[in-house]
Write a protein that binds this DNA or RNA. Structure first.
Lengths: 345, 345
DNA sequence: CTGAAAGCGCTAACAC
DNA sequence: GTGTTAGCGCTTTCAG
């Protein structure tokens, strides 16, 4: 393993001081263009690579941004990550990514590790059972920006990038009502997660605004995964007056639910109109095509990362901190799975 | 922003030397248990956090592993990442992740950046248009292990974790033949990518072994995404004797293709039997359910990461380098989309 | 425009 | 079992 070459080697070789080399390599303006040129060439030719640690150690800043997501293998989350990576990469930041697997304990451990790795900023989408956010306090105390996306913590003073889940839930429900549904079941995930809690509110409000009584019996809690779809279908078929509308907080689950219902001979949307959430690929392929809410994952990633990086590079620290919430546009996409009437909503 | 506290502070506070503190914190055996205890308590109470850079600078090793994938927002890749993250996290490594967006140039830039970040090891799934692998030479020269997964470079001496794509292609094709198909079209991606090249070989061999003539006209090159499915459907319907079998190298694309064909009134599998690849969620939801090859993404991630970490911790450097290829089991999952006969293959 | 010198916080010899 | 010392490679005053 041949030895790493340092700015000292270059300096010696060229008969200048290490300081000058350092400055040249960092494109400092106060260095003669010619000297710079020579230094760059030498560095290149000698196979020099900067030692990030020495530099970090001195500057007390990494170029690393930490990201904690509930799961990496989720189509929504991976879109978000893709958007984040693009922006970060272009701005010269590295991404350190970890997953909480929906566990508060793991999230805490990951946050700790990010903290020790001295990330310049942190982007978080909270785990399902996270209730407190003390594990991010250390970051705030040190002035390291923490920004939440999608699954946000409202208590903290941190910025969050979200969609208006309440409105989206409202719109989805209203659409079903307008299609003539009177008895609408809502399937959702952990209510601890703002996303589901808000959609539920939207669902309730929409019912209320259209004089339909809300009943806890029409709310089904679920893991919202593929397997859960079957259970949900069973539950629905077991309901005494079978519902005529179904609003599931996730496309994959809605799709698997539709499959089970169809297998049992129930017509979609004839017997039950179904609305999903996320606008996953699957919503366009299942039959009938699934009405859903377009959820801009990639853009959310871009916006969150841009915002974080702005915070970092903004010398007037804290000024932008006032931005509390950035809400992205989401949109109900109406397809066949919910169209009982020919007229669109 | 309050000052960071260091081992010196702890040392002073406790009247011991920084060395002892350092040793204690690293759980060095040659430190009195009592002293250790005291140091841990002090560290905890003073809010100490280790400075990774100083440590890295000294030790000349990070605990970072770099990962370069073609795209983050791919269901297969995100499964792989999830598997990798799990293993790495448990072993105390951080993941620095970037995407090449299928571009050789970006892959090169990302590799360079990983190199400068001094990752301890690198995991790569190659971009579509990557033909040379010189950009990883720097790693090899420095003895930094590079391990490829899924999309591997055969030329290098690096280990690769893959599935037997040729065999999988062979099995898929053979299955179609056994279902009575005589005219089978194969849809694939960039032939530059081993994965597609190998599957094509498998397809050819299967035809040959069953005395069906191979024709270039039956091979369709595609981006294999959702939109491409429609084009493919058009192309197929335009073929003079319409094919009776279709082997698409990706589920999402196969599914969208099935949808288009069905819309045009073509019966699946009656008129055309279809086989996909990947065992994506979608294969279980499309109608008819899609015959496909189970592609163990999560396991691939786990295996690749475990292997890399073994390389790293193995003091007998290079010994395990001899492992050239690790092949995971993949398996044809037969569903309705290809079942022309009642008897299974 | 350039350089000398100090130090970021940690660890690894080497001593005791 | 503990301490002394030196130095990892860089950046940053401060002084020319």
């Amino acid at each position: 393993m041949n030895k790493e070459i340092t700015i000292y080697d270059i300096a010696k070789d060229l008969g200048v001081s290490p300081t000058t080399v350092s400055r040249a390599l960092n494109d400092h303006p106060a260095v003669n263009t010619k000297t710079k040129q020579r230094i760059f060439e030498a560095a290149d030719q000698m196979g020099y690579r900067s030692n990030v640690f020495a530099s970090n150690l001195r500057r007390k800043s990494t170029n690393n941004i930490g990201i904690i997501v509930p799961r990496l293998n989720s189509s929504f989350q991976s879109s978000v990550l893709a958007g984040m990576e693009k922006v970060a990469n272009e701005a010269g930041f590295n991404l350190i990514i970890s997953q909480s697997l929906e566990s508060y304990e793991k999230e805490k451990a990951n946050a700790r590790s990010m903290f020790n790795s001295r990330v310049d900023g942190l982007l978080v989408s909270l785990a399902g059972n996270t209730e407190k956010t003390e594990h991010f306090q250390a970051f705030m105390d040190k002035g390291i920006p923490v920004l939440f996306f999608d699954r946000v913590a409202s208590q903290t003073g941190c910025t969050g990038v979200i969609i208006d889940n309440r409105q989206a839930g409202y719109n989805a429900t209203k659409h079903l009502i307008q299609q003539g549904c009177k008895h609408i079941v809502h399937v959702l995930g952990n209510l601890n997660i703002n996303v589901y809690a808000e959609r539920l509110k939207g669902y309730k409000y929409a019912l209320m605004d259209h004089d339909i009584a809300f009943s806890q019996d029409n709310v089904i809690h679920s893991d919202l995964n593929e397997e859960a779809g079957e259970d949900i279908a069973k539950k629905i078929m077991a309901m005494k007056p079978m519902p005529d509308g179904l609003f599931v907080s996730n496309d994959a689950c809605a799709a698997s639910c539709i499959r089970s219902l169809k297998q049992a001979g129930i017509a979609i949307p004839g017997d039950i109109a179904v609305v999903g959430f996320n606008n996953d690929v699957i919503s366009r392929l299942i039959e009938p095509n699934l009405t859903t809410t377009h959820y801009p994952g990639y853009e959310m990633g871009e916006v969150a990362m841009k915002n974080l990086i702005n915070h970092l590079s903004d010398s007037t620290e804290g000024v932008l901190q006032n931005t509390n919430t950035i809400t992205l546009r989401s949109e109900l996409i109406i397809r066949d799975s919910s169209l009982k009437k020919k007229s669109e909503a």
